[in-house]
Design a protein around this nucleic acid. Structure first.
Lengths: 356, 356
DNA sequence: ACATGAGTTGAAAGCGTTTACATAGACAAC
DNA sequence: GTTGTCTATGTAAACGCTTTCAACTCATGT
């Protein structure tokens, strides 16, 4: 337009060089009449500077609207005050709840959390972990104990502690519960009521140490009573509500004397799918079919009938995991395993078998 | 133990000084026989270095297991490759969905996302934003257009672009929809069926530009037909399923001729609560009461009866918001407003009023 | 032969903190 | 008065990158 007008000096970065550069510690130091080191101390270790000095610094900082540059801080201290979390999926309410309380706890300790989902895929998870390590997170929370073997190596190399959640392990720090025992107890409850044909349907068991053991628990309980969990009654489906609907079809398709009289589900979503399909096909729950879910999702209590389910305190898992990780990151001693106890919540979807 | 043994030199940071220090660019440079500048270029702008050199660098980097230190990078470039998102709550599936697709899109562009929830509180939101700005996020996604006035000032000061979602604005970049129009259409659908007493129940409307307009839309549709949305039929509740149950009690408590024949809900969770309570009290949906939800949550289609609801494509909102923000952060031109169209999904919870 | 210029590379100056170390006072003990 | 101990502050060197600028290498055109 106007070639006479001198172009603004190109700044170093591609961003516009604003006259209003953000204030840095040096500016605060100048205004407060102290050195930059004192500014840093006043902000990070207030007890180490004389009250009068401290206040001068605080005042100057407030006046300028100064905020510490966290990248510089991270570079200097070699800690990012950031932790990473990888959950299998955001579609499962229980993970979101755990994530949420994990985050709340971390936030209170002045940590930021970077979250990602693996979509139940080990390679994706590894990729996300790489990304997180590159961001030099100070700690990592993972779900379950099955991961890319490289993951542990890499994390250790970067000295990033890992906390495992939702399952137990004797080789890693963990906050979780015994998945097998949970369904074992649920199955026993059904067997006590007289059920003989109990089915189990879970999400994918590949690289998953929650779903597999849940099926195991049922098998075990039945075995103890001389019953067999027949293959047709042991289903692996993709997770989610629609998967539950499909499962119903597969389980209840055969002749009546082969159909299960009760189903234990790996998630409440699957249970909901089964209930929905049952209602559509006119199968009465619980009179003709008992159903037990897992997780006690928010909707479970208000279904009709309300869903009997295995409740897991996800908030607790998230919170304790966070506290544990905080300990680990600060080289404090730390119990290796925290065991959460799932609780069988009796509601309206279980009854004795019809033919009893 | 052994006082003769010299103590290991105390390292600068409190961490243990590992013999296995992580490799830095300098190490790669040395191994590849090039300068550190070339390493940086090979990694960031491969096309600017001769193929042979590039490969030498890559090989050396791989051999050492080198990863860029993102804090150093951020400090140097003044960009963190991190964006922040604040949603009102993780308890609302629709926000989680949007967040998830936002994240996926950002991730593909090599950005990390820091997420937080405001719990529908402006002060909390502002606090989180402060925290995010301190982390020097490059961009911000917020839900709705009502925020602490400081928020915009501070963001602008840091030159952090903001994208608003789930509602529209002519003052800010936004990806959302017309909340009033959405319920307006839903209300008209009910009115066309002959309903005269339509109620509306939403979550908190304070500092919320989604819930308020949703109620507005109903009022407007009724007004156009000479009907009045009476105060007793216009409810604000805390969000969630239990809130829905309460709402049912309040709305259906009065004498029959004052009860609404249809209810439009601000979320599917509220609708679920209402349905649950209705079923418990023996009120037949849809014959005695029609219900319309909002968001089309995953469980809505499998309720019995399946919930008629206003579907909002949260994945789309998340994805487009991310793309928009990416444009903004790269000083690219950008449409100011992207309008998503909600869709009324007809299912089983609406029927003509009983007394027609 | 020489200037021109495009394409590569290296040296070095940041980026904004933290922190080891030095220094300077103040005060007590001798 | 000297010495030593403390405490509060300042100096300056990292931290590990990116990027400007200059230098250098080869073609290429004249």
């Amino acid at each position: 337009m106007n070639p006479d007008q001198p172009l603004p000096r190109k700044s170093r970065s591609s961003n516009i060089d604003r006259r209003t550069r953000l204030p840095v510690a040096q500016d605060v130091a100048r205004l407060a009449g102290v050195s930059i080191a004192t500014v840093s101390r006043a902000l990070n270790e207030p007890e180490k500077v004389r009250p009068a000095t401290r206040e001068a610094v605080m005042k100057a900082a407030a006046e300028l609207g100064f905020v510490l540059n966290s990248a510089a801080r991270a570079l200097s201290t070699r800690r990012s005050s950031t932790v990473g979390v990888i959950v299998p999926s955001y579609g499962n309410e229980v993970f979101v709840r755990a994530l949420s309380s994990f985050q709340r706890t971390m936030r209170a300790a002045n940590y930021q959390v970077l979250a990602a989902s693996s979509e139940y895929d080990l390679a994706t998870e590894m990729q996300e972990v790489s990304f997180l390590l590159q961001r030099s997170v100070d700690g990592l929370m993972l779900v379950g104990g099955i991961h890319d073997p490289d993951l542990y190596t890499r994390a250790e190399r970067s000295q990033v502690p890992i906390i495992q959640s939702f399952s137990l392990s004797d080789r890693h720090y963990c906050v979780g519960f015994d998945n097998r025992e949970a369904t074992f107890r649920a199955a026993n409850y059904l067997l006590d009521l007289g059920h003989k044909r109990v089915a189990v349907v879970t999400g994918t068991r590949e690289n998953n140490d929650r779903a597999g053991p849940r099926a195991e628990g049922v098998r075990l309980a039945m075995a103890e009573r001389g019953l067999e969990l027949i293959p047709a009654h042991d289903l692996t489906v993709s997770s989610g509500i629609v998967a539950g609907r499909d499962a119903f079809g597969q389980l209840m398709g055969g002749p009546e004397e082969q159909r299960p009289t009760a189903i234990i589900c790996g998630t409440d979503e699957i249970a909901l799918g089964i209930m929905s399909e049952a209602s559509e096909r006119g199968v009465d729950i619980p009179r003709s079919l008992s159903v037990i879910g897992f997780n006690d999702s928010s909707f479970s209590a208000v279904l009709s009938p309300p869903l009997t389910t295995i409740r897991v305190d996800a908030d607790e898992i998230g919170k304790i995991s966070a506290l544990a990780l905080l300990n680990l990151m600060n080289d404090r001693t730390m119990v290796q395993m925290t065991r959460i106890t799932p609780e069988l919540v009796l509601r309206g979807t279980v009854a004795p078998p019809a033919k009893l």
